[in-house]
Simulated assay, not measured.
Amino acid sequence: MQLNLQDIPRVKTISKADFIQDYFKPQKPVVVEQFIEDWPAFSKWNLDYMAKVAGDKTVPLYDDRPVSHTDGFNEPHTTMKMGDYIDLLKKEPTKYRIFLWNILKEVPILQKDFTYPDFGLKLMKGLPMLFFGGTNSHTFMHYDIDLGNIFHFHFEGKKECILYPQSETKYLYKVPHSLITHESIDFSNPDFEKWPALQKAKGYKTHLKHGEVLYMPEGYWHYMKYISPGFSMSLRAIARNPKNLGKAFYNVLIMRYYDNVMRKIKGQKWIDSKNEKAIVRTNALYDSVR
């Protein structure tokens, strides 16, 4: 048995009008295969180039260890020099990933290698973020705190992407007061006896290669797995749907602070309780609809 996933539509190129009409308005994902050939980044950006221009920078690293009450919200698990990290990526599989690394702030020279494309949405120019990963490293299934429209440009290597719209949240074992599903779920090879509700969830899948861009609509859940070492850059536009915009403000201004306070007060019991609720609530819903 497999997840109920359809292939994300692919186009070679796309006009602004077609993107807005066919994908933004209906809030459907798409992969554009040939959109950044005129960027210097298209020919320059690879792991060796990143080691050259940012090798001495200290970068935050994350892995797939279970969430602990001692962790702050999006707090890195360790740090390393970028040059040493890239050497590690080339040498052997590693769980360590770079997550939300602001290149505008950290390595301004990289700003000259790309432009902000006109998809018909106003992109946030202060937040170009880079993400790196080694072979078989992956993120938890999650959605972004601001529920933004995301344009995910991939460089070097191959990356597996699994997406779900917010409408499928009820089947994904979402952890309360967080942005993730239960961390024990392996979305590359899920155990349906343990996570039966996943059979109901309808989503999308694709594999990204160098130079391709994935559009992820507002609030889409996403799971990313690096088939081989590589990195991506995300550009984003704020949510347009008032409901999603309201959720974004709640997440940023209330939810993350509440969760941090409860971690300090209740410790690991708070984390364990949230994980248990994710299972109980989702399975109860699944039992009521099947």
Rank of each mutant, 00 (worst) to 15 (best):
H152M: 08
H152E: 03
H152G: 00
F153V: 12
F153E: 01
F153L: 09
F153M: 08
H154K: 12
F155D: 00
F155W: 01
K158G: 12
K159E: 14
E160R: 11
C161I: 15
I162M: 09
L163E: 08
Y164F: 14
P165S: 13
S167K: 15
E168R: 04
E168G: 02
E168A: 05
Y171T: 09
Y171R: 04
Y171M: 09
V175P: 01
P176F: 05
P176E: 05
H177Y: 13
S178H: 03
S178K: 03
S178G: 06
L179H: 07
L179F: 15
L179G: 03
T181A: 13
H182Q: 10
E183H: 11
I185G: 00
I185P: 01
I185W: 00
D191P: 04
D191T: 08
D191A: 06
F192Q: 11
F192M: 10
E193H: 14
E193N: 15
K194Y: 04
K194T: 10
K194C: 07
W195S: 05
A197V: 09
Q199D: 10
Q199G: 09
K200N: 14
A201K: 07
K202S: 13
K202P: 06
G203N: 13
Y204C: 02
Y204A: 04
T206H: 04
H207S: 12
H207D: 13
K209G: 06
E212V: 02
L214T: 05
M216V: 05
M216C: 06
P217T: 08
P217E: 06
E218T: 02
G219P: 00
G219I: 06
H222A: 02
H222K: 07
H222L: 09
Y223W: 15
K225N: 13
K225T: 11
Y226A: 11
Y226N: 08
Y226V: 03
Y226D: 14
S228T: 15
P229W: 03
G230H: 02
G230Q: 03
G230D: 04
F231I: 06
S232M: 07
M233L: 09
S234K: 09
R236M: 14
R236K: 15
A237Q: 01
I238V: 14
I238N: 12
A239E: 00
A239T: 01
A239R: 01
R240G: 13
R240L: 13
P242V: 05
N244A: 10
N244M: 14
L245P: 01
L245A: 14
K247G: 03
A248F: 00
A248L: 06
F249Q: 14
